[in-house]
């Protein structure tokens, strides 16, 4: 499946089974740097399972997954995320009891976070950056609204803005336009 070579993400012979169901069978995939790569397949073909395996939710049964040349198939989800490999979910996942700005702030990169930083406040420039991105996705006016109160499409946009502020090196978007009004997708 797809090509071989030195990519940002390299999967070799990835196999994942759930009981008797082989969700991913010997997948080999290479995602190069600086490109938008699409993964296409019918419902139930194992696209989300592969995403889950890459980001660590489903430990694989066989094969290898490398990110920037480093084996990541045995790492935990947050460890992989802190390397800069992040994903969005098929179903929108936001922190629904927090307002939009807080959703953005908690999504700032956690790579260099030490114990001392837990006891600090977010700097004003972080808040500014959060508001800029909320403006970019058209949610500035609703920035202090509890995010669970947003419409489905707005939640999807918020999730996208959260992914952007986390400054990932690779962002895996799982069905990013599913359930969204075509006007919003094109607009």
């Amino acid at each position: 499946m797809v090509t071989h070579g030195n990519g940002l993400i390299e999967c070799h012979g990835v196999t994942k089974t759930f009981g008797g169901v082989v969700a991913n069978n010997d997948i080999t995939l290479n995602v190069p740097q600086g490109r938008i790569t699409g993964l296409i397949g019918p419902n139930g073909s194992g696209k989300t399972t592969l995403f889950n395996s890459i980001v660590g939710y489903h430990p694989i049964d066989a094969g290898s997954i490398k990110f920037k040349g480093e084996e990541i198939s045995r790492l935990l989800v947050p460890q992989i995320a802190r390397l800069g490999l992040m994903r969005t979910f098929q179903q929108t996942r936001i922190y629904s009891k927090m307002n939009c700005v807080d959703n953005m702030l908690i999504s700032l990169p956690h790579r260099e976070e030490g114990y001392r930083s837990l006891l600090t406040k977010y700097p004003p420039e972080a808040v500014e950056r959060a508001e800029e991105l909320l403006e970019f996705v058209g949610l500035y006016q609703k920035r202090y609204l509890i995010s669970g109160e947003l419409s489905f499409g707005q939640q999807k946009l918020l999730e996208f803005a959260m992914a952007l502020i986390s400054e990932p090196e690779v962002l895996l978007l799982d069905e990013p336009t599913a359930g969204i009004n075509p006007t919003l997708i094109n607009g």
Binding site: V55, A81, M86, F89, Y95, S107, P109, H110, M162
Partner: peptide, 11 residues
């Protein structure tokens, strides 16, 4: 609110 999401964001 969502621990799985928090983990996916590297928290």
């Amino acid at each position: 609110d969502d621990e799985e999401k928090a983990e996916a964001m590297g928290i």
